[in-house]
Design a binder for these strands. Structure first.
Length: 555
DNA sequence: AAGTCAATCAACCGCATTCAA
DNA sequence: TTTGAATGCGGTTGATTGACT
């Protein structure tokens, strides 16, 4: 596309481009010194003026351009034009395959840090990269393809682990793994594994950086199905704060979940940010799952537009969930799921410590990712199950405060979560999407490999455009369901009286949240161990999911 | 050939950060 | 320390183009 339009123009002012109102911040209240600033495409003459100005004065001080050059453009526009089109050494044309690969890798590590990514691509601009990426996302989403090729995930993972191993979580020497301010040391996960039983509670974890998300093992392409709605991160913070301010602020004291009404569910649904890559009718199913009525504005508010609902569209940007360090500390806010289920275990198996509840309750800054999902599930469900014994000392610390009012949440969840097929999307794949994939087609539901296994050569790379479909899952002859001890952490049952109950609570809540289909695929492993009557969730098909509705049957 | 739709790209917009007065 | 301007960044929008029907 030509960077300029109307080459015949003199580049100064044209009637049709200057008579509209100007209202952005670079217009100095609509004009600069009474001069209406021009907007719209640049002309070659304007380019020439700008180039000449920069030659004389150098870059910067863009607001002075208009004053000194007679160019009726605001400083921001000048800067953008220069940076994106006029500065020397800009590389034009399509991205090379190498560049594309690098973009993918960088995005897997950085998220939507276009400027930083551009720094790794000489001659390319952040705008170019951003446009490319957005186009690519749309394309892949439309095709139902995973966002990240498996090899990218693996590479990221390996690099991360190398970084962790050799640098103890410090930044590796390779800038590809350069961390932003939001990245937590990889050692945290190591510590989680090592101290899984010792950890009292995971909320001590700071925000899991999206940056390291893939690198930390959950980089499965399928993972993008859990991508939260993409918002400007500051907006997210603000909005989520506002979103839950009614809860967060009150939760400390009263946890007034009487507010947890229908719109609350909508909000929680938003916070989960669930989307379904190939779900033919995600709106409906999401709605069913989360109690969002079809047609509700909530989904669109949650950045799921009807037109793009299938995939959450461009909003599905995984690693960019990066919050300032100042925002870290509440595990429930973790923007990313833990890389492996064993880390999920660590996240969900331990009861919250006293004093953490306020930040954990309903996870003010929900990631929409699995850990948050699980956490909220646990929180909600715990409320129900503990409500009658909130004073019981057997309850895990923190549960007490959750109890009574959260019960309302659960009730609401049940009200909304009971439709026979809340998600219409295999919950097996739900979990699969949150776990590293063995590209050989083996299911993620297979016994969860260690991070080392995933990182290692055991994992065969798939073609970049590998499609993760239900067929792939079906190829897996058996879904060796990681049972409760694997999926949810053995310590659930190992920690004494409170934990087996929590275990059931947790899984029950997951069932409530995720819907019915999970059971169907697990049924092949432990068939017929339960019937719907066993489940208090009515039509909940989780009855077929061992370790969920039949949790008590797990030894 | 005309109309429609999707892809692409440039530019805009709003917000956050930085920095100097 | 405060304030406001300058700058940077990321998300979004709208125009253009090309493919398809």
């Amino acid at each position: 596309m030509s960077p300029t339009t109307n080459e015949s123009e003199d580049g100064m002012l044209s009637e049709d481009q200057t008579d509209f109102p100007l209202n952005d911040e670079c217009n100095f209240g609509g004009s600069a010194g009474g001069v209406v600033l021009k907007k719209g495409p640049w002309t070659s003459a304007e380019d020439a003026i700008l180039i000449d100005y920069v030659k004389k004065h150098g870059e910067g001080n863009w607001n002075a351009v208009q004053k000194h050059s007679g160019l009726f453009r605001c400083g921001k526009s000048c800067r953008l034009r220069w940076a994106n089109h006029l500065r020397p050494n800009l590389k034009k044309g399509a991205f090379t395959p190498e560049e594309e690969q690098l973009i993918i890798e960088l995005h897997a590590k950085m998220g939507n840090k276009w400027a930083r990514m551009a720094a790794h691509l000489p001659g390319r601009t952040d705008n170019e990269i951003k446009n490319y990426w957005n186009t690519r996302i749309k394309r892949r989403q439309r095709a139902g393809l995973p966002l990240y090729p498996p090899e990218v995930c693996l590479k990221a993972l390996q690099e991360s682990q190398n970084s962790s191993a050799f640098h103890g979580g410090d930044k590796g020497p390779h800038d590809l793994l350069q961390t932003n301010n939001f990245e937590i040391p990889d050692v945290i996960f190591d510590g989680l594994k090592a101290n899984q039983n010792a950890l009292s509670y995971v909320p001590e974890l700071p925000d899991i950086p999206s940056t390291g998300m893939l690198a930390k093992g959950l980089g499965s392409s399928q993972y993008f199905s859990f991508m939260p709605p993409l918002m400007h991160r500051q907006k997210r913070l603000r909005e989520s704060t506002a979103l839950f301010s009614g809860y967060g602020g009150s939760i400390k004291n009263d946890c007034p979940f009487d507010q947890f009404q229908d719109d609350t569910l909508n909000k929680v649904a938003q916070s989960f940010g669930l989307s379904f890559p190939v779900d033919p009718d995600p709106i409906t199913k999401n709605s069913q799952c989360f109690g969002v009525l079809p047609g509700s504005h909530t989904l669109s508010n949650g950045n799921y537009s009807a037109s793009e609902s299938t995939l959450g569209a461009v909003k599905l940007e995984l690693p960019s969930l990066q919050y300032p360090e100042s925002e870290l500390g509440s595990w429930g806010t973790s923007p990313s799921p833990p890389p492996l289920l064993e880390n999920v275990d660590a996240f969900i198996q331990s009861p919250p410590p006293i004093g953490r509840l306020e930040s954990d309750c309903l996870s003010p800054r929900n990631s929409g990712l699995l850990d948050a999902l699980l956490h909220e599930a646990k929180t909600i469900s715990s409320a129900k199950n503990h409500s009658s014994e909130k004073s019981s000392s057997s309850s895990a610390p923190g549960d007490i405060a959750e109890s009574s009012t959260l019960n309302i949440c659960k009730t609401e969840w049940e009200n909304y979560g009971d439709p026979p097929s809340p998600m219409g999307h295999s919950s097996t794949s739900r979990f699969s999407e949150c776990t590293p994939i063995s590209a050989s087609g083996s299911s993620l539901d297979e016994p969860q490999p260690s991070a080392e296994t995933i990182a290692g050569s055991n994992v065969k790379s798939e073609p970049i455009e590998h499609v993760w479909t239900s067929e792939v899952q079906k190829e897996t002859p058996q879904l060796e369901y990681p049972c409760s001890d694997t999926l949810f952490g053995s310590s659930w049952l190992d920690h004494g009286s409170g934990f087996d109950k929590d275990h059931a609570i947790m899984t029950d809540a997951i069932a409530t949240l995720l819907g019915e289909d999970l059971g169907s695929e697990y049924k092949t492993i432990t068939p017929g161990t339960s019937s719907s009557q066993e489940c208090g969730l009515g039509s909940c098909a989780w009855n077929n999911m061992p370790g969920v509705c039949q949790m008590s049957e797990i030894p």
